[in-house]
């Protein structure tokens, strides 16, 4: 099928991009000030220990050899070790990725569930008070420093009202969730552990709200714009002229067509949320990739950064492909020839 072939071709095109990402981050890791072997060896390391570490990390090899070692390791599933913790980056990513994925998924759910209706409302009441309020929300959403909003929510809901926990992902006294997905909400629900589901929900609310805000704003803005454009189109005018009631015009014709470009926006927002998780996770001590990235960057531990860039590169590319394929499914006019 045409669409499947298109998807496959796009998938294959990820490879060169990822090679580029690995080259970029590898180059970056070699210009970092300070000697990584010195950091890894620690104080009072003997010259022999230092030499040994240089050999272990292959720092004495020529750069192309070092790069080749890194890339061939990647293919085997060895993403290198963190220089400071000595843990394999692949193991760390497996540990932290589900937390970030869960956070981003909840945030995007909020963003879509609120953003799309808000945009629709705004469009059908264009230039009236509802629209003005919604546009103000959108403006604040994209302009608000996420880390600052996170603090405000912490002060208000955590400190003043005491309604919600302000850090972590789960009360540790509830034990570790068992289950394969790594998403606490899903694992706990599957196990029927409702106390844990409730606790996990309470923990995710504030970080997810913070993270959803810019995405929500952008989606609302975009939905409004594309709906207005569609409503101004000939066939909608025709539908109106035919006497179809307003509601059916909007939901029957307008929304479906308006949603197609909005989909792109949702895909982009997903990528933005992955980046934004750096700030949100830092404020809420959310044990995910964002916090891992911050800690690694601040300690100049570059192996994890390289791994994170690659992981996000893969995820982001897949989302883009999914969006484009969905485009094709929703809109038969788009050709994937």
């Amino acid at each position: 099928m045409n669409l499947a072939r298109y998807a496959l071709r796009r998938l294959l095109l990820i490879v060169p991009v990822l090679v580029g990402v690995s080259l970029l981050t590898f180059a970056l890791s070699r210009v970092v000030p300070g000697d990584p072997a010195r950091l890894a060896a620690g104080a009072q390391a003997t010259p022999e220990m230092y030499e040994q570490i240089r050999r272990e990390f292959g720092l004495d090899d020529p750069l192309p050899v070092q790069y080749w070692t890194y890339v061939s390791g990647l293919v085997r599933g060895d993403w290198g070790d963190s220089i400071l913790s000595r843990r394999p980056v692949a193991a760390d990513l497996r540990l932290y990725w589900p937390a970030t994925l869960e956070l981003v998924l909840v945030a995007m759910t909020i963003a879509v569930a609120v953003g799309v209706p808000l945009g629709v409302l705004s469009a059908i009441r264009a230039d009236r008070p509802t629209d003005q309020v919604s546009r103000l929300v959108s403006l604040l959403g994209v302009s608000m420093p996420a880390f600052w909003l996170a603090l405000l929510l912490q002060i208000f809901f955590g400190l003043r009202l005491g309604w919600l926990p302000v850090s972590g992902r789960l009360d540790p006294m509830l034990g570790a969730p068992s289950g394969g997905t790594g998403l606490v909400l899903v694992d706990a629900a599957l196990a029927g552990n409702w106390a844990m589901v409730r606790d996990a929900l309470a923990h995710v609310v504030l970080p997810a709200l913070t993270l959803s805000f810019p995405a929500l704003a952008t989606i609302a803005r975009f939905t409004r714009a594309s709906l207005l454009e569609v409503l101004g189109n000939d066939y909608v005018r025709t539908a109106r002229a035919k006497g179809l009631v307003e509601r059916r015009v909007i939901f029957g014709h307008g929304l479906r067509n308006a949603f197609i470009p909005t989909l792109t926006m949702i895909g982009l927002s997903f990528g933005w949320a992955m980046g934004g998780s750096v700030l949100v996770e830092t404020v809420y001590d959310w044990p995910g990739i964002g916090l891992y990235a911050t800690r690694s960057a601040l300690t100049l531990d570059f192996m994890p950064i390289m791994g994170i860039a690659l992981l996000y590169g893969v995820v982001f590319s897949l989302i883009n492909i999914a969006v484009d394929v969905a485009y094709g499914v929703l809109d038969p006019r788009v050709s994937h020839a």
């Binding site: 950091l39 890894a40 060896a41 620690g42 104080a43 009072q44 390391a45 220990m49 040994q52 570490i53 272990e56 599933g77 060895d78 070790d81 220089i83 400071l84 000595r86 843990r87 394999p88 193991a91």
Partner: peptide
């Protein structure tokens, strides 16, 4: 914090 010397195998 003193970083140290060994490598972990999977």
């Amino acid at each position: 914090g003193r970083a140290t010397v060994a490598r972990l195998a999977e």
